[in-house]
Nucleic acid binder design. Structure first.
Lengths: 163, 163
DNA sequence: CAGTAGGGCTAGGGTTGC
DNA sequence: TGCAACCCTAGCCCTACT
């Protein structure tokens, strides 16, 4: 199609790393929405961010013996899904912080960071959004954009149109 | 954190199906309380049941969205999936709607599936979308919609504007 | 406030192109 | 062949609605 392959630039990669430091690994959508990075990463999707971070992590970790072990496991059907990790939460979080400070990308951090990061933000801005709905809908129809349903996001504001 | 992802076992899935047969789809809490299934499904919440049932339903009805095409392709080696057709966004959206309306009985040509592009959790900015970006951005500025970044989704297509 | 429906997001496995 | 970029989907989260 239109974009056969978009190689990651050094700038994008730097923005991604900065975004992970700021918001944590796993918060791809959040990083993408952050005005600090959205300018650079606007060509990337949240999935792209996740995939790129995975690539960075893999190459960063010493894959001297891990890679072979992982490949070997794949052949043996499934791995034990039970987690016997005896670490306490506090210990884990501390390790994560160390990781971040040292700027070493490791996949482990995502789950724990989710726990550490509380966020109870409510947004009640439907009214001022509705004001914009009608003209936007009309404009889109004129331009031939959108199907039966479309959604417009602008910062925290979301406009939904169904017709 | 002990369970980053709990894959559904065949036993759980069977219990869920039996529960739906007995109590009906949508009665997730009821199914969960039923002594007949509570033993097996005690690790699941009513929301989990709902989500799993959704997955089952989707895979049961549509199922060939990609798998069949992919399997078919394997036999015939590779098919050119490059699309140089300069379709406009509206045209593409129309095709998508057609696909949906006509449903997907069984075997579908791989070619159309490629263009139709089954559901997307992604937000990629393609060239055909770029065409709409400028006028949309200008319009939004006039109307005072959006901040530094806004996102417009129309079906699977996404337009992103940063200014 | 609890339950449900439905959209959204992420993790991880797969696939493709160079 | 290896790797980087991309695709697909199960499972889980968030929000609105009732």
């Amino acid at each position: 199609m239109g974009a056969p392959k978009q190689k990651w630039t050094a700038e994008e990669e730097a923005a991604l790393k900065a975004g992970v430091v700021k918001h944590g690994a796993g918060k791809w959508r959040t990083i993408l929405k952050d005005p600090e990075f959205s300018g650079i990463l606007c060509m990337r999707s949240n999935v792209d961010l996740k995939d790129k971070w995975r690539n960075i992590s893999v190459t960063a970790s010493g894959w001297g013996s891990r890679e072979k072990a992982r490949i070997a496991l794949k052949k043996n059907k499934q791995v034990s899904k039970h987690d016997d990790n005896p670490m306490t939460l506090s210990t884990i979080v501390k390790d994560i912080n160390d990781e971040i400070v040292h700027a070493k990308p490791l996949a482990v951090s995502s789950e724990s960071l989710r726990i550490a990061g509380p966020k109870g933000s409510n947004s009640r801005k439907r009214d001022d959004i509705k004001e914009k709905e009608e003209p936007m809908k009309k404009w889109c129809e004129e331009k031939g954009i959108g199907g039966k349903k479309m959604r417009i996001e602008a910062q925290e504001k979301v406009i939904e149109i169904v017709h």
